[in-house]
Design a protein around this nucleic acid. Structure first.
Length: 479
DNA sequence: TGAAATGTTGGGGCG
DNA sequence: ACGCCCCAACATTTC
């Protein structure tokens, strides 16, 4: 290969410069580097939801600036990935392409086809792992199969099989000669207009620097009490790294290394931090299971659930989406999601349980809503976590485990601060009753300025009977 | 990474 | 002093 033939780095869900082996490899070739992002809305790959598109817009802007600082220029192109790559190869004389692997079936199929096509044209392609601690196919049971239960999976996968050290950032990027055409980012319309509903998203800082700040803040302050603090939605007790991880603005190897460093400094907090690592483990586990069962976006892992009598309930679904179910903790979560593109994990479980078990609405409907509204929407995590709640998934919560939204609220939001924040019409109620406004006497409600059914909905369903109905449906599956 | 129903135990009130 | 009942507290099981 001539020294002047460029190498293309095809960015996808690895929007960072550090610990990016595809970029490091390309930069190490000593040839001009063409960083590329393709907006491909024609592929079988599921199109990002509205919240994800908002994030992608900012993340690409940040990546573009970071690349400029190294002397390079991020090229933006829109269209079928195979065609765009072929065009760019023809335009620039590139003789190599580098990328980080994706693991969903549609992306794998696309990438395999692209690799074959480019190889045929004499372009050398190489892919790398930037997204996972372990490749999904590398973790194997004693019998050589794949795992479906988390604990034994994590026992195996937690131990580093190889080098888990993150790599650094390349120095200068050698720019290609000539001017390579690039779309203006704004022309992709990733940011919402008419209306711009993203006002509540402004606390996020998409991009590699924002991800690093988030990790540093977490390790300095929150991590040492993670196991106890993570379940309190009123408190910032989680890392909130999920969107950064999804877009690859930070990688799990970097988090792993940073946590090890921090844990050494604070011996006492090891169990707390171990719980956090376990959450990374669930992310790995989800990708592992999803890789080995690629049709789980539509199919139950446990096929017994194929016969489950899901209900049609347009009104209930609308109430759930809008945060108007009459169950304060559910409504608070759904409104936090709508406003900020994120929901605290404890509340995700409660809200998801409510949709699937109380309303008996198909988990796929909930999955689709989360996909559209979450900034951290990730196919493997979203699909498998929904199946986990529904009871159809891997190592799933048994179906009869039905969350009681009142008890969950009282336990995890004891003072009602989370509800008060996101359901302000209930803010005047004391914490002792804020999770069950229907039990507050009319005079007290009036005093708090709440008229049931006007300011705040009367519960759309009776939880006790809904629970019984769901359990009866579940029993029907067994027989 | 549940909740409710059911079972068991033991302290205290009481005749 | 003793048996009986009540019931809170905790444990177990069931869904």
């Amino acid at each position: 290969m001539p020294d002047s033939a460029p190498v293309i780095v095809w960015f996808r869900q690895d929007l960072r410069l550090r610990d990016n082996p595809a970029l490091t490899d390309a930069a190490g070739l000593g040839r001009p580097v063409i960083p590329l992002y393709i907006l491909d809305e024609t592929a079988d790959v599921r199109r990002p939801g509205a919240a994800s598109r908002w994030w992608l817009d900012k993340s690409l802007r940040a990546l573009g600036k970071d690349i400029e600082a190294l002397g390079g220029r991020l090229i933006l192109r829109r269209g079928p990935a195979a065609r765009i790559l072929a065009e760019l190869v023809a335009e620039t004389g590139a003789e190599a392409v580098r990328w980080s692997r994706l693991y969903d079936a549609a992306s794998v199929a696309r990438d395999v086809a692209i690799k074959a096509k480019l190889a045929k044209a004499g372009v050398e392609c190489r892919s790398f792992n930037a997204a996972l601690l372990n490749e999904p196919w590398e973790v194997k049971t004693g019998a050589g199969g794949d795992y479906r239960v988390f604990t034994p999976y994590w026992r195996t996968a937690r131990a580093p099989a190889g080098d888990r050290a993150p790599t650094g950032r390349p120095g200068k990027l050698r720019a290609p000669a000539g001017n390579t055409g690039s779309d203006p980012l704004a022309s992709w319309s990733l940011h919402p207009t008419a209306p711009d509903w993203s006002k509540g998203f402004e606390d996020w800082a998409p991009g590699e620097a924002g991800a690093q700040r988030r990790l540093d803040g977490f390790l300095d302050d929150v991590a040492c009490r993670y196991a106890t603090g993570r379940d309190k939605p009123a408190v910032a007790g989680t890392s909130q790294l999920s969107p950064h991880l999804h877009f690859g603005e930070i990688g799990p190897r970097q988090i792993w290394a940073a946590v090890q460093g921090a844990a050494v400094r604070q011996q006492a907090s090891h169990p707390q931090v171990e719980t956090f690592l376990e959450e990374l483990g669930w992310r790995e586990f989800n990708h592992h299971v999803f890789y080995h069962h690629p049709n789980l976006t539509g199919q139950n892992l446990d096929s017994a659930f194929d016969a489950f009598p899901w209900r049609e309930d347009a009104e209930g679904l609308m109430a759930w989406r809008r945060g108007r179910t009459g169950f304060p903790i559910v409504d608070a979560g759904m409104r936090q999601l709508w406003a900020t593109g994120w929901m605290h994990n404890r509340v995700r479980m409660i809200a998801a349980s409510f949709l699937v078990k109380d309303l008996m609405i198909d988990w796929r409907i909930g999955e689709a809503w989360f996909w559209d509204t979450l900034v951290d929407a990730d196919l493997a995590n979203n699909v498998l976590n929904w199946q986990w709640v529904a009871g159809s998934g891997a190592d799933a919560a048994p179906y009869f485990r039905v969350f009681n939204p009142t008890l969950q609220g009282r336990t995890f939001d004891p003072d009602g601060d989370y509800v008060r924040r996101w359901v302000p019409e209930l803010a005047g109620l004391p914490g002792s009753v804020i999770h069950e406004p229907w039990r507050v006497p009319p005079e007290a409600l009036a005093k708090a300025g709440v008229e049931p059914g006007v300011d705040y909905p009367i519960p759309i369903i009776d939880h006790v009977s809904a629970r019984k109905r769901a359990l009866a449906a579940y029993r029907g599956l067994r027989s």
